[in-house]
Structure formats: structure tokens, C-alpha cells
Design a protein around this nucleic acid. Structure first.
Length: 195
DNA sequence: CTATAGATAATCT
DNA sequence: GATTATCTATAGG
């Protein structure tokens, strides 16, 4: 079921996640993300950090958010609204507590698997939205804290420089004016239209 | 288009 | 004990 990736793809450079969350969130746009060979191109992200009232890390370490206070380059997976999973990537430049929420990807690899998991033929509804994306890639609590350098994760750097736009984050009640949502300009696979 | 059910853990009062 | 949470699907107008 693994299929050949286009040649010339390189893994992410060392230290990719050892930066401020907004820098990582921007740099992740266009990156190829696979989980067990299923995934595609990241087109939408959001940044959170410990100084951010909207972040899970804002009030300090807890059992749930423990991965956010661990080393960069690991996954933070949590359940939201009692029923959906959300995939975050831990990052920081010194002080811990940063993470990037993966909100949408363009389905490219293992699309048939995604369709079965999601039970939807519409490619825009496969990975558009953090809960949908997690379901399509098979992400759940078992991956919480997992290292992003190793199986089942694969991350490949983007080839060119994508045009990245930014704006308000989605679904939060506080700090709504912090423009830490990033997306690929013009992508039809966003969780909602550009704002 | 708007409204609301859905199911659970963490956090708050 | 109550409320809320980085959301999605579906029913109804």
C-alpha cells in the first residue's frame, strides 16, 4: 500500500522544531506529512505557546499537556469536545510550552485508506479540519508523545517556497486577535475559507 | 443557511 | 459538582 513518493524529497533539517511556534507553524506549510504512509501536504496550521491564553500550556504542565513541556519534535494528541482527536507538533526555542496544531492537509498519499476511515468521497472533507485529519490519518491517543522522526511518522521538507498567509485562529475564545493561523494561499483544502 | 446533538476529560467554582 | 473544550455531522428552515 506504500506508494513511491516523488524523488528529491528530503527529511526535515535538524532543529526544525527548535523555534518559536509561529515560525514552525509557517515553516510547516507545504511539508509532506505521513502517518503509516497515509497523508499529504500540510496546508493549514495554528501556533500556540505558553504565553498564550488560548494555549493548553498557558496554565503550566498538567497530565494532559505533558508532551507540550517535553522535547521539541514530538506529537501532542488530545481529545476535543469529547469525541475528536487533534494532532499537534511540539516545538520551542528554549522555554517549553509551544506547539503547532495541524488543521488541514491536502490528501496525496493513501487516499483510499482515508476514504474508508472517513467514509466520505469528497476530498475536501477528508483532511479539512483537525478532527477530520486525525481520523483520516489514523491519529489517536496512542501517538501522544511519539517522536516525529520515527515510525509511523514521516515528514519531508517542502520543495519550493509556498505563499503563506496568516490570520485569526479558529475555535478559540481568548486571544482571538493573535494572527497565528497560517495557510497555503489559494488552497482548496482548508478547513474554512481564508479570512 | 442556522441550530444542535454528540461523549469525555480537564479545569474551574 | 458544573462547565468547557484548538470540532463534526446532520437535521431542519
Amino acid at each position: 500500500m506504500t506508494r513511491a513518493l516523488p524523488s528529491g524529497l528530503a527529511v526535515l533539517p535538524d532543529g526544525f522544531f527548535a523555534r518559536e511556534a509561529p515560525a514552525v507553524a509557517r515553516a510547516l506549510i507545504g511539508v509532506r506529512l505521513l502517518v503509516n504512509g497515509v497523508g499529504g501536504r500540510v496546508v493549514e496550521t495554528e501556533a500556540y505557546d505558553a504565553g498564550d491564553p488560548a494555549s493548553h500550556s498557558y496554565r503550566g504542565p498538567t497530565p494532559r499537556n505533558a508532551p507540550m513541556f517535553g522535547p521539541p519534535g514530538h506529537a501532542y494528541v488530545y481529545r476535543i469536545y469529547g469525541l475528536h482527536w487533534c494532532l499537534n507538533m511540539v516545538c520551542s526555542a528554549g522555554p517549553p510550552g509551544g506547539a503547532v496544531l495541524i488543521r488541514a492537509i491536502e490528501p496525496l498519499d493513501g487516499v483510499e485508506t482515508m476514504r474508508q476511515r472517513r467514509r466520505s468521497p469528497d476530498p475536501r472533507l477528508l483532511c479539512g479540519g483537525p478532527g477530520r485529519l486525525a481520523q483520516a490519518l489514523g491519529v489517536d491517543a496512542t501517538l501522544n508523545g511519539a517522536c516525529l522522526d520515527t515510525s509511523p511518522f514521516e515528514l519531508f521538507d517542502r520543495v519550493g517556497e509556498p505563499i503563506v498567509e496568516c490570520g485569526r485562529r479558529v475555535g478559540i475564545r481568548t486571544a482571538i486577535d493573535t494572527p497565528w493561523r497560517f495557510w497555503l494561499e489559494g488552497s482548496p483544502f482548508l478547513s474554512r475559507p481564508a479570512s
